[in-house]
Structure formats: structure tokens, C-alpha cells
């Protein structure tokens, strides 16, 4: 692990302890990484003993711009959230990365944890985040020829209007 990674991890931890931010993430350990430092931060955490990547998902903050972020973190439309677990330390940590709308790309964690394969495909399928170096970035839940990314906030629920009309009486 390089020294710069440790330094960064510690500063990010400091940012997390600001009271305002802490209230928004009750009792949980959250780190904010930039797109550039994302791989290094996660790699550093893996070396620190976070041996399981339990979850990876994406959030579209299109209609909720005023969320609480520590100083120095520039809000973008998308956010990729990675939940790590350390069995030896009995601790969890969450890494949040801001991903801009104009270029929704992020490096893949496949080389660190092959278990991210399906999770990143899900984030790509439903939210349209492109993970570079992912071995097989295809849709996973929707049909291959589906248009759009359903979990984006500008994608409608796709509600079909329900018709109410008198049923022909059986008696």
C-alpha cells in the first residue's frame, strides 16, 4: 500500500466525522473517494483487512441535489456506493464515489474482487454506469435490446394506466 493512500483514507475519515455529515449516516463509517482515487482507496482498504466486498450499487441524485456531503466533495448526478466488510476487524466501511452525468464511467473492481462482476453489471443495466475493464459489461436483468436505464430518476416507472369499467354481469 502506498503512503498516499493511507493519508487520503485518513483525511477522508476526518471529513466523515463532521457532525452534520455524521447525522446523515448514523453510526456508520463512510469514506468519499474521487474517481481518480477510487481504485487506490478500495485497494488500500483491502490491504487493511477489508476482505469482503458485500455490495455495490449506484444512486441517481438527479432530483435530490441538496444532499449532505463533507467539505471538498463536489456533488455529481450519480454516486456509486461500495460496501466493504472486514471479518478480522468486525467492521464495515462504505466508499462513495461521485460520477458525473456527462461521463458516467468508473474503473471496475473486478480485479480486486471477482464477486463484483454481477453487481457492476446490475449498476450498468439499471443505472447506466460504465465500468471500464469490466470483463463482460452487458445487461444482466433487462433484455439485451432494452432502451434506457430503468432506475434513473428521469426514467418513468412505466406505469400502465388501469382501466376501470363495468364488468359484464354474470347473473
Amino acid at each position: 500500500m502506498s503512503d498516499s493512500t493511507v493519508e487520503q483514507t485518513e483525511t477522508e475519515t476526518a471529513a466523515e466525522t463532521e457532525p452534520e455529515t455524521a447525522a446523515a449516516t448514523p453510526g456508520q463509517h463512510v469514506l468519499h473517494a474521487t474517481r481518480e482515487s477510487y481504485l487506490d482507496v478500495v485497494k488500500g482498504l483491502q490491504d487493511e483487512g477489508y476482505d469482503m466486498l458485500v455490495d455495490l450499487c449506484a444512486v441517481d441524485y438527479l432530483s435530490h441535489p441538496g444532499r449532505v456531503l463533507p467539505n471538498g466533495v463536489e456533488p455529481e448526478r450519480f454516486e456509486v456506493v461500495v460496501n466493504l466488510l472486514s471479518r478480522p476487524l468486525r467492521k464495515r466501511v462504505r466508499v462513495r464515489v461521485q460520477v458525473p452525468d456527462a461521463d458516467p464511467t468508473l474503473p471496475s473492481l473486478f480485479d480486486l474482487w471477482p464477486g463484483t462482476e454481477a453487481m457492476e453489471r446490475e449498476a450498468f443495466d439499471l443505472m447506466g454506469i460504465v465500468f471500464t475493464d469490466h470483463p463482460d459489461l452487458t445487461r444482466i436483468l433487462m433484455p439485451e435490446d432494452w432502451e434506457g436505464h430503468p432506475l434513473r430518476k428521469d426514467y418513468g416507472v412505466g406505469r400502465v394506466p388501469v382501466q376501470f369499467k363495468a364488468a359484464p354481469s354474470t347473473r
Binding site: T25, P26, Q28, V54, D55, S63, R67, V81
Partner: peptide, 24 residues
């Protein structure tokens, strides 16, 4: 529900069941 985000996990018959909730 106040603004914030939270990840909660419990042990389900098949493994770790986690819920990630974001509130605005």
C-alpha cells in the same frame, strides 16, 4: 424520514441480506 443514507445487514437463511436506503 430525515435526510441520510444507511446500510443495514442481517443474516438471512442464504447469507447476508443488506438494505441500502437513501432518504431525501
Amino acid at each position: 424520514v430525515p435526510t441520510g443514507e444507511v446500510y443495514v445487514a442481517i443474516e438471512q437463511p442464504r447469507g447476508e441480506l443488506g438494505a441500502y436506503l437513501v432518504s431525501d
